[in-house]
Amino acid sequence: MGSFMPREGSTAMDKKMCWILIFLTIAGNVVMVQWTVEAYLGREFEQVVVYSGIGVVLAFIALIVYINWRKLEYSTEGHR
């Protein structure tokens, strides 16, 4: 599909990086769900808040990275 040549203006946040970050947030969120439930069942409510806070932050990172990826993906010329 796309050209494999490095595009001009490609920054540290290129598309591959976006993919990696998004999958890292998935991995992180799976862990956070597990820990949250565990802490909740153990009535460690302070920890529940911490873990779920991290989960929310990771969800936002995923969203922001996705928006960034979308910008890069759909701005590339010659794909359509």
Binding site: V30, A59, F60
Partner: peptide, 8 residues
């Protein structure tokens, strides 16, 4: 990813 994160 977002669904997982927000489900907490």
């Amino acid at each position: 990813s977002m669904a997982l994160g927000l489900s907490t």
